[in-house]
């Protein structure tokens, strides 16, 4: 697919765990704008490692990941950091909100980091992101006082705040009840459909498959099935 936003080729990731352990073994994957891809598989199948490489958090041992034609493995560390800041939004199973900050501040932080001191209307951007996920009314609340569903909404707002082209979610419904999980899936689906983002989700939650454009099943570090 020549117009893919993310192009991964022959990705291999090896770890030294008292011997070489191959977490991902020759995976190739393309993800287009507006597409929602679900990666499923048992624990230890390499899903999260693959997601980490797609997001520039981990460098592959072999193979390549390109976003918009730019090879991540060739980027110096600072450029990779900027790539994550501007081009990728992350959603985590455990939300990873900074509990010392309020809801608004959690979102504002990444906006400020991305704007690098330029005097744009930060609050407008933050409010828009919170409003988008229906969490604007929570803005002044402390994140410790939120329910799991509310936390995940805020985490999605933070992921969307810098208008990234890619949204990567690791078990986004793993810590949520079914209603909150449905809401989170809807937000991620909306980010792909209406905002034309490439959304890659790693999950055990089969409900997500109904919304995904494609499902990739992994086993022992390899892609076993594409649906």
């Amino acid at each position: 697919m020549s117009d893919a936003l993310i192009t991964a080729r022959d990705l291999v990731k090896e770890y030294d765990a008292g011997g070489v352990f191959r977490a991902v073994d020759g995976v190739s994957l393309d993800v287009q704008r507006g597409e929602m891809v679900l990666i499923i598989g048992p624990n230890g199948s390499g899903k999260t490692t693959l997601l980490s490489m797609l997001g520039g958090l981990v460098r592959p041992t072999h193979g390549s990941v390109s976003v918009d034609g730019r090879a991540l493995q060739e980027m110096p560390e600072r450029e990779l950091e900027l790539f994550r800041l501007h081009r990728v939004g992350f959603v985590f199973q455990t939300f990873r909100l900074i509990d010392a900050l309020s809801v608004r501040e959690n979102v504002q932080l990444v906006v400020e980091m991305a704007r690098d001191g330029r005097p744009e209307p930060v609050q407008t951007t933050v409010d828009r992101a919170l409003e988008r996920v229906g969490a604007l009314h929570l803005a002044s609340r402390n994140t410790r006082a939120l329910s799991g569903g509310e936390k995940q909404r805020v985490a999605i707002a933070r992921a969307l705040a810098n208008d990234p082209a890619i949204l990567l979610a690791d078990e986004p419904t793993g810590s949520l009840d079914s209603a909150a999980g449905e809401a989170a899936i809807a937000l991620l689906h909306d980010a792909a459909r209406n905002d034309n983002r490439a959304v890659v989700i790693v999950s055990h939650d089969t409900r997500i498959a109904q919304h995904a454009d494609r499902v990739v099943r992994m086993l022992d570090g390899c892609v076993s099935t594409r649906m």
């Binding site: 997001g55 958090l57 560390e77 600072r78 950091e81 900027l82 790539f83 994550r84 800041l85 501007h86 992350f90 990873r96 900074i98 010392a100 990444v110 980091m113 991305a114 933070r158």
Partner: peptide, 13 residues
């Protein structure tokens, strides 16, 4: 440590 790891993942240098 978790907060610093999150900041790094989000793009903080």
């Amino acid at each position: 440590r978790d907060d610093y790891a999150t900041l790094k993942a989000l793009g903080a240098g």
